[in-house]
């Protein structure tokens, strides 16, 4: 771990100023991913801005009937929040499927949004990786890529976003709220927040330099059955190979009358295809929806299995929804 200067500003504005002024600064909240990466010198900030004591740890009702989740709300608290459990079940379930009790107690909402990939080669500084060392190449292509993307990947990067929470937020159409040093604030729809790798895989989100996440807003609850199915190699404490977040409303005869589907483990960002959702509602067929979602899927060898697995998992989720 490289040396850094530790700062503990006492306001969001001060944090934003520091983040803007200091070159190579990082905010630290839970630290569960950042310190992990700093120990391996994958992240090498020279200023670390501790935002843990900023007043961004509240969950509040919005006038629209939704929820506004402070950036520093811990994953565990969010999953345990009564309204999240009752009305945003997909989010609670996704959070509870992630990491461990200890990590959820520390990891924050904003930190989870910014969680970096688990790509093996990103984590090994002796290997080329365009995300870690732009221009060096991608060792995952042609390598062992069991956990890599099958959708939206590029010649530069086939990494996946490892978060469970993000998949649920995508299904819920959450909005990311930010602040910057100039006192500006903006909202970024979750769909636009995470990027595909393209030829700049090192740029993972729509955040601008120095911009700070202050909250995540959830629109008013989406009625229906909320499911989060995480497929993994061990029964707990493992990243998803494939996951499906689904909100399914049932109409006559149990057929889906409305559906939202987001996928984890398939791409550099949580993957959602609204057309596939329409197809699902129109045809009632999970396979037809999967055909649409996976139309452009491409395996890289050891991750080929994710394509049939995603289809089968969607089928299972729709089956579960039908019998719920």
């Amino acid at each position: 771990m490289k040396a850094f200067t530790y700062e503990r500003p006492d306001s969001v504005a001060a944090a934003a100023s520091l983040a803007a002024e200091r070159p190579n600064a990082r905010l630290i909240a839970g630290g569960t991913n950042l310190l992990d990466l700093m120990k391996l010198q994958i992240e090498t900030p020279t200023t670390l801005i501790d935002v843990n004591r900023l007043p961004l740890d509240q969950v509040a009702d919005t006038p629209e009937g939704g929820l506004r989740v402070g950036a520093l709300v811990r994953n565990a608290d969010l999953a345990a929040h009564p309204r999240v459990r009752k009305e945003y079940g997909v989010l609670a379930k996704a959070l509870l499927a992630g990491a461990s009790g200890q990590l959820r107690n520390k990891a924050t909402t904003a930190g989870n949004l910014l969680q970096r990939t688990r790509c093996y080669y990103f984590y090994d500084t002796s290997k080329p990786c365009n995300k870690r060392a732009p221009g060096s190449g991608c060792a995952a292509i042609g390598g062992y890529n069991r956990i890599m993307a099958v959708l939206g990947a590029s010649e530069s990067c086939i990494a996946t976003n490892p978060s469970d929470m993000n998949v649920a937020l995508r299904a819920l159409d959450a909005t990311v709220e930010t602040a910057d040093a100039g006192g500006g604030a903006r909202t970024i729809p979750i769909a636009a927040f995470h990027r595909l790798p393209g030829d700049t895989p090192e740029i993972e989100t729509a955040l601008r330099p120095g911009e700070i996440i202050t909250a995540v807003s959830l629109p008013k609850p989406v009625p229906g059955i909320h499911l989060y199915r995480k497929v993994r190699d061990r029964a707990s404490y493992a990243f998803a190979t494939v996951s499906v977040a689904a909100i399914v409303a049932k109409g006559d005869g149990g057929r889906p009358s409305a559906a939202r589907l987001a996928f984890g483990g398939l791409a550099h960002k949580p993957w959602r295809d609204e057309t596939a959702e329409r197809i699902l509602v129109e045809t009632g067929s999970a396979d037809a929806a999967a055909d649409r979602v996976l139309a452009g899927a491409r395996g890289y060898g050891s991750n080929d299995f994710k394509i049939p697995l995603a289809r089968r998992t969607l089928r299972a989720v729709m089956d579960e929804a039908a019998h719920a």
Binding site: V231, A235, L309, R312, R315, A316
Partner: peptide
């Protein structure tokens, strides 16, 4: 799991 092939 007949859908996913997960063995428990």
């Amino acid at each position: 799991d007949a859908d996913t092939g997960e063995v428990r």
